[in-house]
Design a protein around this nucleic acid. Structure first.
Lengths: 203, 203, 203, 203
DNA sequence: CAATAATCGAGACGGTACGTCACGTCTTCTT
DNA sequence: AAGAAGACGTGACGTACCGTCTCGATTATTG
């Protein structure tokens, strides 16, 4: 029995290790440039230049612009991914919708819109977006709804995903189509209209 | 009195008139290439080549890729823009949602998603999309809803745009995020959940 | 019978014609950079930049650096390619050797050495060098020697090319190996040593 | 008395000694790649990879590609550098010229041409070539010629270097310009033409 | 019916960014 | 210390499109 760290032996790869400074600088300048130029006009050349990094270093670690933007985006969003509060499903969802309305109106909202937009020409990007952003939140939200169904807070014969799409759809639609303002009152209005349809029919 | 074309003061400009063959060929190849490559990878160079047209001819009539795509899109969508049926608001909207679900699943759906996607990096494009596609339909739909409010079919203290966003939001969300299937049952499910919240409270 | 220029009908190709300004600027900056940096360090990027020309314009007309350098070289050398004087073979060759000694010591000499040097790693370049530079001069020189053989000025059982290699070999050797000075006296020294072996044995 | 290594003051540096396997592998793969790709396309990256060696190991011992190639070249040529036979100057030189004709036609000839070619863009390389290859042989050849002048075998008022350039010039010229074949008969032809000019005038 | 004028195709132009390759240097662990 | 492995910033490669610009040819209206 030795003091060798068990099977967590990290087995360092040989060679010079990846520079964390470079990685961070790249992700940061990606995010900054993304906010001012949009996805299409965003060039790897400019990202590398602003990060003080060789272009090859970018290509060494990210296969294309989409993956790089996704990682930059996820890194920025990470803190926001959790559903923080607890309480009745109704209260939690209401607050969560308000929170995302604020996020959609912040610079991050522009990035989210850009990522979804880019995903329309880049299936890989859209898949990454689903996997890293949509699905984690959906999973938590579905759990919340199922629990609410069990307790009788909402009707139990509904598909959780459909409910979520009805609640969040208006927010995304206004984020992406910009046909109407995405103001702080919208979540409340939406909720008030939708809620009656969710409650059990007979008290 | 001369053979001047009557009073329909067309004031033909001198010089060779615009070639309608070229115009059609350009719009058609734009649409075709758009469906197979997405907006970003769509190049004017390729459009002109496929249309058998000089590049300058494209640039003479459309200022940029976005406008060209918009015109190609609107030309293709034109027939679908009207709300055809009449009857109770409930019935009309229900059918209209089903109809758009079908369109979203057709090749045209891909084009719509592409146009919205491109709009995220190109404000001009998004504005053209709103003006030429969203607004005409909204206007008709708003009228329909206001009439239904007047007759007491739905509650009168609601914002028509919010209602429309709740109904169509899930469709657009699935079109753009592709996180779940956009099948023919969705409109019914959405409608059944939302409708109770729209009806007048006390019978 | 019309005044149509016969079959010399130039049949212009369609499209914008090649820019002669660009062509000249490229050849000139090639020559200038070649003299200061050598072949290896000569970059198409730098040539294009100095010529105020797009890189693609260079690549449109020359497949690689070697061909470009060859054309620049030949353009510069063109005026020197003729054997100008006439008289006895002995006198003509003697003067020609002196002339090339001067050329080898001029900036053009550096270019010639560079071209031959580059040819060692680039067979295509060497072939172009032979075709465009060596062979034209050889042809004239061979003719001169054959005439001198006919008149009995030099022995008739010798291979003209061998004679030329003996006479010019020392010049090229010093140009390329730089092991000894290539001064103005060398041609005379070489000529005096070689000449006895060229004259008919018995008068 | 200590375990100090005796008086054979080799003063070994501390640390791991240089790997002779690595050195040989590098020189060998340099030579092999040189024969198949030419100097320009020869990359340190490829040499190191083929030798199974880290790039830094190459750079630790050779400052640049030119020096590395020179050492590889000299190592290969070393055995050929001596003038082996003795006898009359005429006979020795005649045989030496034949010998180099054979060498020039062997794979080594390609390497020599490559080295001279590379030297045209790399003064350092040319200097190394002179120092390590040209000069040693010249020194011996000059001595031979001066002895022949002393014995009256050849005229004494000639510059040995000029003579050598006349004799070897044609060989180098054909090696480098490839305008004519460098066959085994050439040395004899050259020698027969040049020799009369070397012999004393009056018998 | 010629002159004028705008459009057409073709394709060259000066640019910008692409994604790749090798450079020569560096940082890690191993020998 | 020297080794291999391999990441680093740098810079040129050759390519693809950008949007603009000449060309000659074509097709209309105007004098």
């Amino acid at each position: 029995m030795s003091k060798v760290s068990q099977n967590e032996s990290v087995t360092r790869t040989p060679g010079r290790p990846r520079s964390q400074e470079a990685r961070k600088a790249i992700l940061e300048s990606t995010l900054q440039l993304l906010q001012k130029t949009g996805f299409t006009d965003l060039s790897i050349e400019a990202i590398a230049a602003r990060a003080g990094v060789g272009k090859a270093t970018v290509y060494r670690w990210w296969p294309n612009k989409a993956e790089l933007v996704m990682e930059a985006f996820v890194t920025a969003v990470e803190a926001e991914l959790r559903i923080p509060t607890s309480g009745s499903a109704e209260k939690v969802i209401r607050e969560q919708m308000k929170r995302w309305t604020r996020i959609f109106n912040s610079p991050l909202g522009k990035v989210i819109a850009t990522v979804i937009g880019a995903g329309q020409s880049d299936p890989e990007m859209l898949r990454a977006f689903q996997r890293q952003y949509v699905e984690p939140r959906r999973t938590e939200a579905r759990k919340l709804l199922r629990e609410a169904m069990r307790t009788g807070e909402i009707r139990s014969n509904l598909d959780p995903d459909t409910i979520l799409d009805i609640l969040y759809g208006p927010l995304y639609m206004r984020l992406l189509l910009r046909h109407a303002e995405l103001n702080s009152e919208l979540p409340g209005l939406v909720f008030d209209i939708v809620m009656p349809g969710l409650r059990p029919v007979d008290p």
